[in-house]
Simulated assay, not measured.
Amino acid sequence: MSALGDAFVYLNDPFNWIRSGGILDLLVQHLRISGLAVLLAAALAVPAGVLLGRSGRGAGAIVALSNVSRAVPTLALLTVLAVTPLGFSETGTVLALAVFAVPPMLTNTFVGFREVDRDVREAARAMGMSRGQMLRQVELPLALPLVMTGVRTAAVQVVATATLAALVGGGGLGRIINLGFGQQDLGQILAGAVLVAALALLTELVLVLVSTAVTPGQRRWPLRRVRSSPAGEPEPTSSGVPL
């Protein structure tokens, strides 16, 4: 049987899903590790990006930090943390993945707030808005699309990279691939790769929907229909209600 057929058999065996340490247990571990890493990175990167973006300073430092962090292999960082007092723990994995997730969030947040039109800021200030009001009501809505793009990019990267945690004794779906290599089972390796890829794509889809939902302005997902007006001109409608 081919590796593709073996992978299909593996994924369609209920025992592989529900047994202790099976796919469902590993999926929960993968989501927990990834979620904690993204939340930790967001707690550090987003406020820093907001402060630097509003001041307009620190562009060079952000570019340097982004380049250096991307040059460090995640597996190397996981290995280094494994020999520290943290050991082969979930905490070390979360920290390594959080470091990996900071650059896209920090860069996008910085750019998003820096690119807010100066005239818009001046108009808000002329209306008597405080700095806090400007942040909440003016700058954040305008910067939010780029901020969410950074979060989405980081989350998808973390979900995919968390697979490497299995190489240093961590949990997650990477253990399926790791065990497959140990048993020289190409079907199991392929099944694990399919699961990780599907989870990354699902993460991308969910965050695209979240980003669209929280971004101010017209929603993109409602279907728009066109009907003819009495004059023969097309008249847009949304949800069947004439505009």
Rank of each mutant, 00 (worst) to 15 (best):
S20P: 09
G56L: 01
R70G: 07
S20F: 12
S130A: 00
V147M: 05
F181P: 06
A41M: 06
G192A: 12
T84E: 05
D117K: 12
S228L: 11
Y10F: 15
M129H: 03
L40I: 13
S55L: 06
A37K: 10
V147K: 00
A96V: 00
P222E: 08
P104R: 00
L44G: 14
A42V: 08
L205R: 15
M134K: 09
P103I: 00
V208K: 09
A61W: 07
S239E: 11
T153M: 09
S211V: 04
V50G: 06
V196Q: 08
A37W: 09
I33G: 12
F113M: 10
Q188V: 10
T153L: 13
L75P: 13
S2M: 03
A160T: 14
R118P: 07
A42H: 06
L86Y: 07
S55T: 07
R220M: 11
V46Y: 03
S66V: 12
A191M: 15
A166N: 13
L52E: 09
N178Q: 15
A41H: 05
S228M: 07
S89M: 09
R152P: 05
G217D: 04
D25Q: 05
V214T: 06
V120A: 11
A59C: 01
A198E: 10
V168Y: 09
A197Q: 07
G21V: 13
V196L: 06
D185P: 15
G128S: 02
G128N: 02
N178I: 08
D6E: 15
P236R: 03
G58R: 02
V138L: 08
P85W: 01
F100D: 00
M134F: 06
R57F: 08
G60S: 08
L86I: 08
A76I: 07
V9T: 15
L173P: 11
A165F: 10
L144N: 04
Q184P: 12
V210D: 03
L167W: 14
P47H: 05
P47T: 01
D119M: 12
A123E: 11
R121E: 13
T107A: 12
I23W: 06
G49T: 02
G22K: 11
V94R: 01
Q218W: 06
V138A: 07
G56F: 01
G132P: 14
R227G: 07
F113Y: 10
V116D: 07
P242T: 00
T149R: 05
G60K: 04
L146V: 12
I62S: 05
P85L: 01
R219W: 01
A143R: 07
V116G: 09
G217L: 04
S34K: 11
V68F: 04
G180R: 11
V196I: 14
V68M: 06
L243I: 13
D6H: 13
W221D: 13
A37F: 03
